[in-house]
């Protein structure tokens, strides 16, 4: 294999992985220990694959494979976000050699704490996508017919928008945010799926948007066409659960795997809402 950043001669023949398991929503959770044979250049995904293939705990008991989310395995889809040794990050880019170098006692995997757990490491991040809808994170084009090229853009403009546009809605920013509280509803017995979904959406709509959605609002406000609907997005940022909930802990920008300047977006949103509020006060 390709030479790793450090040598392995002191690596153990196997290592322990502790997984916080939960059978379903509302069920109690418990830690389960797994013993994994060491190989160089593993990542947490290959560890989970090994656990699935083993189907046996460290104590030799049969167990069900751990459920987890993943897709691209190259840190562009955002699916495999979880807590690795207590830190929110993508499992695919969490390299075992590095994790063991930092903490030889093993690796601890837990689901994200700000979203309802569906099973084991699988969580429901619908609230984040709902937040994108709240801030109208799209360009209002007339239609999809041919109307020539889009507006010309300076390199500077593109270099501002591109990093924001790399956001993969992975949820790291909100997971680490001390102001982002978990919203988890339980379905009433007499409720249909649609009714429950409706109630859930309403709860999501009143809760904090989080850094990702705020940053997306700035992405679209910065686009010449998107700018035409900037007011709508700013209204959404000023609604309950909007920008004002931010407490400037700035964990979002520190944990963002794409290094998106989220706090710049937040400050820009602050500036734009300030002007918007003044305009609203004095222009009508």
């Amino acid at each position: 294999m390709i030479a790793p950043a450090h040598d392995h001669h002191d690596q153990p023949s196997s290592f322990e992985v502790r997984v916080l398991r939960q059978a379903g929503p509302g069920e109690p959770s418990h830690w389960e220990r797994h013993q994994i044979t060491y190989e160089p250049n593993l990542n947490v995904i290959s560890v989970l694959q090994k656990i699935a293939a083993q189907a046996t705990t460290a104590d030799g008991k049969d167990t069900t494979p751990v459920a987890w989310d993943c897709n691209c395995l190259e840190e562009v889809c955002g699916a495999c976000t979880m807590l690795v040794n207590g830190q929110t990050r993508q499992a695919c880019s969490a390299l075992v050699d590095k994790l063991l170098a930092d903490d030889p006692s093993g690796i601890e995997l837990a689901p994200m704490s700000k979203f309802p757990v569906l099973r084991d490491l699988v969580v429901d991040r619908a609230r984040m996508f709902r937040a994108l809808e709240r801030v109208h994170a799209w360009i209002e084009v007339d239609g999809y017919g041919d109307r020539g090229a889009g507006p010309r853009e300076s390199q500077e403009g593109q270099e501002f928008r591109y990093p924001l546009s790399e956001c993969m809605t992975c949820g790291c920013c909100v997971e680490a945010c001390p102001q982002y509280a978990k919203v988890e509803l339980t379905k009433h017995v007499d409720e249909t799926d649609e009714q429950f979904e409706k109630r859930q959406e309403q709860a999501y709509d009143e809760s904090f948007l989080g850094a990702a959605a705020i940053s997306q609002a700035m992405l679209f406000n910065e686009h010449p066409t998107g700018h035409m609907n900037a007011g709508e997005r700013l209204e959404a940022l000023m609604a309950p659960g909007g920008l004002q909930v931010c407490g400037n802990a700035q964990n979002c920008v520190s944990v963002c795997p794409k290094e998106i300047p989220l706090t710049t977006s937040i400050a820009k949103a602050g500036r734009q809402t300030t002007w918007h509020a003044f305009k609203r006060l004095f222009d009508r």
Partner: peptide
Amino acid sequence: VIVAGGMPNNNQYRYAANYRYTLQ
């Protein structure tokens, strides 16, 4: 009210700005 709505997490995320948040 703001303080009541926050959930400091300095043990997990030991960044300077996060300490400042809690200290604030």
